[in-house]
């Protein structure tokens, strides 16, 4: 299925029930899932969606959970859910925007422990990895794993890499990591099997529940990584004066 500038119909779509108040919409691939998610948000913003509590994109799906229905016929399946299920297969999806204009810029230092392995998998020199990665226009496809962890797509297929054979028991907060089609930044220390190519200069910016929005990398956010020079580690002045 191809997609031109004039958009495309959502043909290869399957609508699966996920309980009485939710639908799991499965698209042909991640690209279409991202475009479908964007279309859902557009329709919600202009009030053209029934009340839905959660719109949760996945790798190839979008979950619509908590579909409001005030008119259940005699306790049978809710009508709003079924109406929506019938309607959304005929939607037309405008092409996905992935350009770097207005993208969130994330300064990173490309000095991860798996840099050499990724360079080998890519067939380039270690010093070429930062340029290849930072010139990519990324987009957050979906979140999961931990609050504020975004699965970013945009790397061309030839730059996809497998997970590490043995996961690390601890990956530090801010680690910039690759696995399959995805790039991600660990919001907090955790075990992890992704290949680490660098670290975010200010990992605290990823997730702050007191901020609006709480997540820097919410679904649909366009992202560009900017190579930063490593900051030399120096002792704070108060320490050195003692």
């Amino acid at each position: 299925m191809s997609r031109g500038d004039d958009g495309t119909e959502v043909r290869e779509v399957r609508v699966l029930p996920a309980g009485a108040h939710a639908l799991l919409v499965e698209l042909a691939d991640g690209q279409h899932a991202e475009a479908f998610h964007a279309e859902l948000l557009r329709r919600r913003d202009r009030g053209a969606l029934p009340g839905v509590r959660e719109i949760v994109p996945g790798a190839r799906t979008v979950l619509l959970d908590g579909i409001e229905d005030h008119r259940c016929r005699g306790g049978r399946v809710p009508t709003a859910r079924d109406r929506l299920a019938r309607e959304l297969v005929s939607w037309t999806l405008p092409p996905l925007r992935r350009e770097v204009r207005d993208a969130v810029e994330i300064p990173v230092v490309y000095d991860g422990p798996d840099l050499a392995e990724v360079a080998a998998l890519w067939g380039v020199g270690v010093d070429e990895v930062p340029a290849l990665h930072s010139r990519t226009a990324f987009r957050v496809a979906f979140c999961g794993f931990a609050p504020g962890f975004g699965y970013l797509t945009g790397l061309p297929e030839r730059l996809h890499v497998p997970r590490r054979a043995s996961p690390r028991t601890r990956v530090p907060a801010g680690a910039l990591a690759l696995a399959g089609p995805y790039t991600g930044v660990y919001p907090r220390p955790s075990p992890g099997g992704w290949q680490l190519i660098g670290r975010m200069v200010d990992p605290a910016a990823l997730w702050d529940p007191g901020r609006e929005p709480a997540a820097l990398l919410g679904p649909g956010t366009r992202v560009r990584f900017v190579a930063a020079e490593p900051v030399p580690v120096s002792l704070p002045r108060t320490e050195s004066c003692r």
Partner: peptide, 9 residues
């Protein structure tokens, strides 16, 4: 805390 599943919450 409903309504935040899209952020992994």
């Amino acid at each position: 805390r409903p309504g935040w599943a899209h952020l992994g919450v």
